[in-house]
Design a protein around this nucleic acid. Structure first.
Length: 254
DNA sequence: GTTGAGCGTT
């Protein structure tokens, strides 16, 4: 283990991974301040390692804890603190050379199975999933609930596609999130029903769940806006990034 | 083709 700082080293990245794909994974931990995938100067090909700088050491430590041995393609990436404390001046400069290449984060699909999601539980006879979620949440300390909601908020802001995949794979999580927001008084019941009722059948082009998940995302985003002044600096920055994406049309479908 | 460990293309 190296000296903790804001910069981490990432090794064993498959050669075919783009900067965007790697970035998307590291943004799932928190806003990324700077990033560099190292390319061979002569061949222009990835050397299979790179560096990620976060805004604070805690987020960097979280990346080291949670993303070391994360599986990309057929390899497990190596994540540790970097020897150096800064990442250099090339802030997000090495964009794909192809002008038709996808924009940042677009079309990138992170493998959910790599996240090692918990397997879930068997419900007692006669207990619905909704009831079970309510029971679980009623025993959850307010502080913990707020923390989870905040982390989901960060995920939605930094990795919208991963968030959509996650909510699709775990619809219970959407339910728990909405109920948590209500329990915490972060959003009033009227705006929940307003979002849900807005969804008419003809809006659902590829399955009813799709629009419902988007509705959840929109709800989280509106929550984000309402709470913006109470947020820590790094999350306000992330929201600014999100607004820029919406403005430029990258997130029009959300 | 040369590609699997590696701590940074000015």
């Amino acid at each position: 283990m190296n000296t903790p700082g804001r910069v981490i080293y990432v090794g064993s990245i498959p050669y075919d991974q783009t900067e965007e794909q790697v970035l998307d994974i590291f943004r799932s931990v928190g806003p990324v301040a700077n990033f560099r995938l190292v390319f061979d100067k002569d061949t222009g090909k990835s050397k299979g390692y790179g560096f990620v700088e976060y805004h604070d050491a805690d987020t960097a430590a979280s990346a080291v804890r949670n993303l070391n041995n994360y599986t990309i393609g057929n390899r497990n990436i190596r994540v540790d603190f970097s020897h150096e404390t800064s990442i250099g001046p090339n802030v997000f400069t090495s964009r794909p050379k192809d002008p038709n290449a996808p924009a940042a984060g677009a079309g990138v699909s992170v493998n959910l199975s790599s996240l090692n999601l918990p397997p879930g539980i068997t419900l007692p006879p006669g207990v619905s999933a909704a009831e079970s979620i309510t029971n679980t949440l009623s025993q959850c300390p307010r502080e913990t609930m707020l923390q989870v909601v905040t982390e989901l908020q960060t995920l939605v802001v930094n990795s919208p596609q991963l968030a959509i995949d996650l909510f699709r794979a775990c619809p219970q999580l959407s339910y728990a999130l909405v109920q948590s927001c209500l329990a915490l008084g972060l959003v009033d019941p009227m705006s929940i029903s307003a979002v849900v009722l807005r969804e008419s059948p003809e809006d659902s082009n590829d399955g009813a769940g799709d629009e419902a998940q988007k509705a959840i995302i929109r709800q989280v985003l509106s929550l984000t806006t309402e709470q913006i002044q109470a947020l820590p600096e790094q999350q306000r920055m992330a929201i600014d990034q999100l607004r820029e994406k919406v403005r430029s049309g990258q997130l029009a479908s959300i």
